[in-house]
Amino acid sequence: MSKRLDPALAVFLALLAALIAFAAWLPAWAQSLLSIALATGMVVLGLTLLMRTGLVSFGQSLYLCLGAYAAGILNSKYGVTDMIIAVGAGALVAGVVAFLLGFLMATYRHIFFATLSLAFSMILYGLLVKSADLGSTDGFNLTAPTIMGIKLEGALSQRYKLILGAVLAAIATIGLWRYLRTPLGRLAPAIRDNELRVEYMGASVRHAVHVKYTIAGLLGGIGGALAALAVGHIDPDSMAYWTVSGELVFIAVLSGSASVIAPFLAAAVFETLRMLAHDYSPNTWQLSLGAAMLLLILFLPGGLASVLVRRSREPAP
């Protein structure tokens, strides 16, 4: 319970700082890969917060998609090209929707939570596919973003997307790390373990779940906006369909919920593997994912995070 920064988190923050400092020297493909990994990691960070509470959302693409479309619509329909505003809008829209749906979702558990979240994401998918103004299934492209009034072209644009992602990842991990040490944050594993006891301690399980669901949605929206900026294109199939949520769940399982940095590591591993599979073996990509997931479930149920935090479980001298 010391208030010193967790060593793994400190290392991660140092890595992010190095990334920001040396972004210009990274090859374009690596910048793009890392931007997408940071965006995905942000969404998965929210998902692991829910997992920590014992909840698995099979519809987190809802918030990814809301964030992406909020950013994309501002960018290409209203000409608001600023990246920071785009991310803010994504966070706001996703956060508000999560807060509202949270009143309902906070009363559901287990597979009911999983399936209801799936239903909501599919409703959004259905809406977007029929929205001709937003390009239906084709989606639409974003125009080149700016940051605080500075026009960004080509390589510069890509570098700033990466830097923005890294800064937000640092803020999110520190923020969540601190939150998990507050009384409300500490309730997460307690709720997963024993809701009855939580209520008999005088804490509201429903309220605690609602707060966590809202945070997860907010992070999903930020991740979605970052993803829209990083890719420069959005469409319902790659943002909202349930298979997107499935991928996010996969990364969350790979990550595990015991560490705030593991989601970003898992996302980086996932995006790297996806890139390799795309080049070398496109027909066995899902097969490898599935096999890896089964191995994780059977042999490393705590994910990467359980490797990261194992040391701190040992009794203090």
Partner: peptide, 23 residues
């Protein structure tokens, strides 16, 4: 194991079988 764990396992299986069909 928890129902959710089994759900995840069958999701993994789903991914595998999708590619098995492709192959």
């Amino acid at each position: 194991k928890d129902e959710i764990v089994l759900l995840l396992a069958t999701y993994a299986l789903f991914l595998i079988l999708e590619d098995v069909i492709k192959l």
